[in-house]
Design a protein around this nucleic acid. Structure first.
Length: 343
DNA sequence: AAATCGGGGAT
DNA sequence: ATCCCAGATTT
């Protein structure tokens, strides 16, 4: 099917047009693995600063393996999908115990938080194993090249695309092939307005020929979003703010949050601090922020999940993005509670 | 197969 | 306002 000519054109294009990304300057499997986990459902520009800070703080597997979960989550705070951070640390401990980094697709796949895509990416980029890494970019590129209207969400279609990509892969240089396919999807074969005039493989693209590139890939719609309203309260003692900690299991487990007004019956609102919206998956939060004080200690405030936290400490703690956004609306000293600790 | 898990940038 | 991003895991 002219695969080798397509691959040749793709590779030549990639050599000249690839972005200079931090994880492309190393062949350290650990660093490549960390980058791939961070890049799951996350844009390159968002990952770069996190990647550099994370590698500086946890430079190798042993450093990550001996870190506490709170430290790892703190380094991940704001990046989203926090189970990635927990699994990354768990996997590092497994690797440290095993004594060496796993060197083939199957062993890498066995690590927590690593699926077919990530295992293929690490195995090919770090160890030259010819295994196609099929991500959202590659699904889009392949669906267009073949003018394939399959729903890319379906399992059967995924399997077919994986087979296609494995057949197409350059066995002499799988690392370059995989990254070139993804780079093409990320910078040329774009979701909305593909830049076909700049595409090195447009001559091999059936969708280009049929004029259907804009309609591909086909993807099933997702469910509608629901609205949620909250009023978050900033109660401040000099230099400290009242936060509560999420349960050890469930969404954003162990993260710190601002209290909702419903948690504080004795709240006296001093002044509104602002309003903002935040979307998490299919929920849209409309959040009012108020600064206030407490006239008496509410029941449960002495529970360990409530604590007075200094603003400076928060940079080293897993704090939800909603709480960070809310706090950004209220500069220090906005509100001072008269309740003393332990009373 | 469908739901869930974060957050933000582009359109 | 919607889409979707170098996806994985659970239900």
């Amino acid at each position: 099917m002219g695969g080798s000519r397509l691959v040749g054109a793709l590779k030549l294009w990639y050599i000249h047009h690839r972005r200079d990304l931090p994880w492309r300057r190393t062949r350290d499997p650990y660093a490549i693995w960390v980058s791939e986990i961070m890049l799951q459902q996350t844009r390159v520009e968002a990952v770069i600063p996190y990647y550099e800070r994370f590698l500086a703080r946890f430079p190798d597997v042993p450093a990550l393996a001996r870190a506490s979960e709170v430290d790892v989550l703190s380094a991940w705070s704001g990046l989203g999908y926090y189970s990635r951070a927990r699994n990354l640390r768990r996997a590092a401990r497994k690797i440290a115990e095993a004594g060496s980094f796993p060197r083939d697709f199957e062993s890498i796949l066995a690590l927590p938080g690593v699926g077919a895509y990530t295992a293929a990416a690490v195995a090919s980029i770090a160890f030259d194993e010819p295994r196609a890494a099929v991500d959202g970019n590659v699904l889009r590129v392949l669906s267009r090249i073949g003018n394939d209207p399959s729903d890319i969400g379906s399992q059967a279609a995924r399997a077919r695309f994986q087979t296609q990509a494995d057949a197409l892969i350059d066995r002499n240089d799988p690392a370059t092939f995989n990254q070139a396919m993804m780079e093409l999807g990320a910078t040329v074969c774009l979701p909305r307005a593909p830049r076909c005039l700049l595409c090195p493989v447009s001559a091999f693209c059936e969708a280009r020929k049929q004029g259907t590139a804009n309609e591909l890939p086909v993807k099933r719609r997702k469910t509608a979003t629901t609205e949620v309203e909250m009023t978050l309260v900033i109660v401040e003692r000099p230099g400290r703010i009242l936060l509560w900690k999420r349960e050890a299991a469930g969404m954003m487990a162990g993260f710190w949050e601002l209290p909702d007004a419903s948690l504080l019956p004795s709240l006296k609102v001093r002044r509104p601090a602002g309003v903002f919206t935040h979307t998490i998956m299919n929920r849209r939060y409309r959040i009012q922020v108020v600064a206030g004080r407490l006239t008496k200690v509410p029941a449960g405030l002495d529970s360990p999940k409530f604590q007075w936290i200094a603003r400076k400490e928060m940079s080293e703690m897993p704090v939800s993005t909603i709480a960070r956004k809310a706090l950004a609306l209220a500069p220090p000293g906005t509100s001072t509670s008269r309740v003393r600790p332990g009373t």
